[in-house]
Simulated assay, not measured.
Amino acid sequence: MNTAQRLGYGKYEKLLIVNADDFGLCRSVNETVTELLAEGAIGSATVMMVCPWSSGAAAMLRDVCPDADVGVHWTLTSEWKGYKWGPLCRTRSVASLAGPDGWFPETSGEAERKADPDEVRQELIAQTEAALKAGIRLTHADSHMGSLYGFHTGNDLLQVAFDVCAVFGLPFRLPRMLMAVGGRRIPSEIMERAKVRVRQAEDRGIILPDYVIGPNYDLSEGDTYETAKTEGLSLLRGLLPGVTEWIAHPSRATEELRAFHGQPAKRAMEADFWRDENVRNVLADEGIRMIGWKDLQRLQASLA
């Protein structure tokens, strides 16, 4: 039984959650994500509570769309050289999560190699509680840069994430079925480990989407909005029955974003994509129903 069926939909129905990652990153992202949520162009977002603009994100939610579907974007990395952040936990040492400068490491691989699981647990709790104290009614959780998944070293921290999800009643971004896109190949060891982790999450009563997809994060040479749109429409037409989460990174390409971000134009294209009439037409033609993480959270609560 797929997650769509567990939500009460038919076996062959296609449900899509479009989630805007990195809410709270900066003002440009906050404004764009809030607008898209208010317009109903996307279904949800996840907020980076470690970033200075997270309080601005919470304020915009209160003012513009207080009922928006927003989760916590658990963060253990700080990837840009000109803009840094570090752990929120103040109740105990989290020295394994930060370098001598106090910032998170730049890469997920470094985070995987150094992170102490107990310190990760305390940091995930601190980020979750910070969102709740800011007045955000959390609906789900996910992982910034995939640093909890063990992609680089095999040292995943998913069981820690499951523990925190269970405490706070949060569904989690872990696909029940891995799906290779864009010609990528998924190594067999990752496939097998993922199956085990899915069983462990579901044994804890944590609701997961069936699939997780998204467009390429970076632009290649010669890419334009039209090539990015073609990629996105192809992904939409290829959706499988069940619940799919689409990872989006929308923002206006402002001077603020350009000051630290390596791909501001791609973020602007993603914002334009979800407002594009052709996208709405394909959603209708393919019979794709837009939902939010709230639907999965209600299901999780009903089974608790």
Rank of each mutant, 00 (worst) to 15 (best):
V64L: 05
P117S: 09
S143V: 02
A111G: 02
L157E: 05
L97C: 12
P52A: 14
E35T: 11
R92H: 04
Y149E: 11
C65W: 00
S96R: 08
A57R: 08
T46L: 08
M60Q: 14
T107G: 05
L88H: 03
I42D: 06
Y149F: 15
T107P: 02
A131I: 03
K84T: 12
E39A: 13
A57C: 06
G135K: 08
Y83Q: 04
H73D: 02
G135D: 11
M145T: 11
A131M: 06
A57E: 06
G102C: 07
T75W: 00
M145W: 00
L36W: 00
T46V: 01
G154N: 09
T46H: 09
M60E: 14
L124Q: 13
V94K: 03
Q159Y: 05
T107R: 13
C51P: 00
P66V: 01
E123N: 09
G135L: 08
T75Y: 01
K114R: 15
A58L: 06
A59R: 15
A59W: 11
G154A: 09
G86L: 01
I42M: 02
D118V: 05
T107E: 11
V70Q: 07
G146A: 07
D142Q: 06
G102N: 11
F151K: 13
S78W: 00
D118W: 07
A98E: 13
V70W: 09
S44L: 02
V50K: 01
W53I: 02
I125H: 09
Y149T: 12
T139S: 14
L88A: 12
C65D: 01
S147P: 07
R92A: 13
L124G: 11
I136Y: 01
K114Y: 05
D118C: 05
T77A: 08
L61Y: 05
T77P: 05
D67P: 00
T139P: 12
S55A: 13
G40W: 01
D101K: 10
E35Y: 01
R121D: 13
L158A: 11
Y149H: 15
K133E: 14
D156N: 15
G135H: 10
A161M: 12
P105K: 11
S143C: 13
W53L: 07
M48Q: 09
K84N: 14
L158M: 14
E119M: 09
T34D: 03
V120E: 09
A98S: 14
P117V: 06
T77W: 02
